[in-house]
């Protein structure tokens, strides 16, 4: 399988990649296939962020159990993102509020900060809709899944 590692023209560039996740995790395949792109993109050493809004906030809820629907529970994969040097997960506060969710309903996801004696730091940042607008405006490449 050829994953097309960056070659030639791609080598020098570093862009801000943002993956916008707007859909619930299991009703459609978009969430899972978004995560697959995110994991591959880590190999390209770009500046990667993820945003979760609308029903996309459900992707990060804790205690997911998919046994009854016979689908793979891929939520543990989010906990590995820190190992892939992906450290910016933005969750829109208004989307949580609109769904009766609180930050405590989300998984605890951390990474070890090499620069600060491997202190455990949170990957998830709760931001307001207006803050997220500004974050999105700073990106070079947007993927909307």
């Amino acid at each position: 399988m050829n994953d097309g590692k960056a070659t030639n023209g791609a080598a020098g560039a570093k862009k801000r990649f943002m993956y916008v996740n707007r859909k619930a995790p299991y009703g459609t395949i978009y969430a899972l296939e978004s995560l697959e792109v995110v994991l591959i993109s880590a190999a390209f050493e770009q500046d990667v962020s993820l945003a979760f809004l609308d029903d996309g906030v459900y992707q990060l809820t804790k205690g997911q159990n998919t046994t009854a629907i016979g689908m793979k529970n891929f939520s543990p994969t989010f906990k590995a993102l820190g190992d892939y040097e992906i450290k910016k997960l933005y969750v829109e506060k208004e989307s949580l509020d609109e769904r009766g969710l609180a930050p405590e309903d989300l998984m605890q996801i951390t990474y070890e900060d090499e620069d600060e004696d491997y202190a455990e730091k949170p990957l998830i940042h709760i931001v307001s809709r207006s803050e997220l607008t500004e974050i999105l405006a700073r990106q070079d490449v947007l993927f909307n899944f």
Partner: peptide
């Protein structure tokens, strides 16, 4: 047919 890296590369290039 190829891998997702081809999509990321398109985003970069």
């Amino acid at each position: 047919i190829s891998g997702l890296g081809q999509l990321v590369e398109a985003g970069i290039v």
